[in-house]
C-alpha cells in the first residue's frame, strides 16, 4: 500500500519493516498463543537428506510431515482449511519431533516416540493401515498385499496403496517401507529418490 505523501512526508525516512522488532514480536506472539490455547497448529521446517521437511503439530501431536515437492505453502493452506486457520510458525512445539528426526537421519534412532495426531488421515481404513505401518520394523520392507492382510482386508491392496500415498505423516509413520511384491520400491509422496534414500539409510552401511 502506498502511503507516501509527495511533499515532506514525516514518515518517509522510516523503514517499512523493522526486522528485529518483527522477530521479537513474533516470538512473543508464539508464546502468548501457546499459553492461551490459541496455537492450534504450530509449524517449522527441517533440512534433511530428503530435502526440507515441513513439520506441523496440533496440541495433540504431530499432525503433518510434508516434502518440499508437495509445496509447503499449499500444505499449510490445506491444514488451515481442514484443521484450523490458527496456524503459526512456532518452532518450539516441534523441538521433540525435529530432534528425533535428526537422530533418525543420522542413524541413531530406529523408532519414533512422538504423540501423533491422525486428524488429516481421512477414512477409517486408511487410519487402520497407518496404525499397522509401524509394525514393519526399521530396515525391513513389506508388500502392499501383506499390509492389506495385516489390516484385515487382504484384497484391499489398492486401498493400502492410497493410504500410503496420502499418509499425512511420512517418514515418522513408515509408509516408505511398503514396496511392490516384485521388490521394486513403488510410488512415494516424497518422490522415488526420497524412498530410496530412506530405505538405503535403514539398510545400514
Amino acid at each position: 500500500m502506498n502511503t507516501s505523501v509527495s511533499n515532506g512526508d514525516p514518515f518517509v525516512s522510516l523503514p517499512e519493516i523493522d526486522e528485529a522488532a518483527q522477530r521479537r514480536l513474533h516470538a512473543r506472539l508464539e508464546a502468548a498463543a501457546d499459553e492461551t490455547g490459541l496455537l492450534d497448529v504450530a509449524y517449522r521446517t527441517l533440512d534433511t537428506p530428503v530435502g526440507a521437511l515441513l513439520l506441523a503439530a496440533t496440541e495433540k501431536g504431530l499432525v503433518r510431515v510434508a516434502f518440499a515437492r508437495e509445496d509447503h505453502a499449499a500444505v499449510l493452506d490445506r491444514i488451515a482449511q481442514l484443521v484450523s486457520p490458527r496456524v503459526l510458525h512456532a518452532p518450539g512445539r516441534l523441538d521433540p519431533a525435529a530432534r528425533e528426526l535428526e537422530e533418525y537421519f543420522t542413524g541413531r534412532r530406529s523408532t519414533f516416540d512422538l504423540p501423533l495426531d491422525f486428524s488429516l488421515a481421512r477414512g477409517t481404513f486408511r487410519r487402520v493401515v497407518l496404525t499397522h505401518l509401524p509394525e514393519i520394523r526399521y530396515g525391513q520392507t513389506a508388500s502392499y498385499a501383506s499390509v492389506a492382510a495385516a489390516a484385515g482386508s487382504p484384497r484391499a491392496v489398492r486401498a493400502v496403496g492410497s493410504a500410503c500415498a496420502t499418509n499425512p505423516l511420512p517418514v515418522v509413520v513408515p509408509c516408505h517401507r511398503v514396496v511392490r511384491s516384485d521388490g521394486t520400491f513403488g510410488q512415494y509422496a516424497g518422490g522415488p529418490e526420497a524412498k530410496s534414500t530412506l530405505l538405503t539409510l535403514e539398510a545400514g552401511p
Partner: peptide, 16 residues
C-alpha cells in the same frame, strides 16, 4: 470458506 494460515496475516500486515 477457507482462510489462509494466520502466519501469512502476521507476515503481511505485522509491519504496518
Amino acid at each position: 470458506m477457507s482462510q489462509p494460515p494466520f502466519e501469512t496475516i502476521v507476515v503481511q500486515y505485522g509491519p504496518t
